[in-house]
């Protein structure tokens, strides 16, 4: 049930991000003379101070927000898998080095670091923001994966693979990785949430690329235009609600995966459990 609701929310936003701009076809930055109007039949979600359509901005913003979220989660997960699995499997000096590295990144205060890094970026494109968020956000996943690898590498089938002469990297990625997929998926989704929030935060502080429309930058301009003071609720509620909803959707899917992967949390009857 949780997973269905979560998937429905995510599917809605994904569809919006992919197909929405094509359907609407308007320019999200285009200004008009109808500034600061409430929701109407012409502008379903109203307009900004400079007469930009909020609905168009939301739809285009979904692309940037989710794009940054997914891209940085992909980078962060790749880093976490590489560091966590390799360190956990080999142990010894490699593990020590990787653990120290992970711990350093864990205790770094990530938001100030993101702000500093983003401030020094040569150009503040979507990709570079995603990289900055990934660099500060991979350590948590690496730590979880290392702990799991430590337990899986002692299992018989890993010993057996070693006994048949498999090479270490092959064992890590073909024997251990599949077993850890639920954990990796969970940490990936959590990282997506984190990255979307971080991107919104960065944009809100005006540190991301403000010429591209994202939910964060909408909030930034709403704040700048004192939307709250003048009572223009349609300006800041939609982007805020979108961020909250997508976070909820991802969290629901996460709980759902947890329930399936962890039998002790299983409340629903799963018809055919995979090994």
């Amino acid at each position: 049930m949780k997973i269905k609701a979560g998937v429905a929310i995510l599917a809605f936003f994904t569809l919006m991000a992919i197909a929405g701009p094509l359907l609407i076809g308007a320019d999200p930055a285009a200004t008009s003379n109808d500034g600061l109007q409430g929701p109407s039949s012409a502008h379903w979600l109203g307009t900004t101070q400079t007469g930009q359509d909020i609905l168009v901005q939301i739809v285009y913003g979904a692309r940037v927000s989710m794009g940054v979220g997914v891209l940085s989660a992909v980078i962060a997960t790749l880093l976490a898998v590489a560091v966590g699995l390799v360190g956990g499997y080999f142990g010894g000096a490699i593990d020590e080095t990787f653990s120290v590295l992970t711990n350093i990144f864990l205790v770094l205060p990530s938001l100030p670091l993101i702000i500093v890094l983003a401030g020094y970026l040569p150009q503040r494109g979507v990709a570079s923001v995603a990289v900055v968020i990934a660099v500060t956000g991979w350590a948590w996943g690496a730590r979880v994966l290392r702990a799991q690898t430590l337990s899986v590498r002692r299992r018989d089938f890993v010993e057996a693979a070693r006994a048949s002469g498999e090479r270490p990297l092959r064992i890590i990625f073909f024997e251990i990785l599949p077993v850890l997929l639920p954990v990796i998926a969970t940490s990936f989704l959590a990282t997506v949430v984190g990255a979307i929030l971080a991107e919104a935060g960065l944009s809100f502080l005006g540190l991301a690329d403000l010429s591209t429309v994202s939910w964060g930058s909408m909030l930034y301009f709403a704040q700048n235009g004192q939307a709250l003071l003048i009572g223009a609720w349609w300006w800041f509620i939609p982007p805020g609600l979108c961020i909250a909803l997508i976070g909820t959707g991802l969290a629901l899917v996460n709980f759902g995966i947890d329930e399936i992967a962890n039998p002790r949390l299983r409340t629903i009857k799963v018809r055919k459990a995979r090994a």
Partner: peptide, 22 residues
Amino acid sequence: RAYRRQVQLIFQDPFASLNPFH
């Protein structure tokens, strides 16, 4: 690996010694 080519092991627990994903 060269030694493994000569000497092989059979494990006690067949439920643990095969990777459930392969």
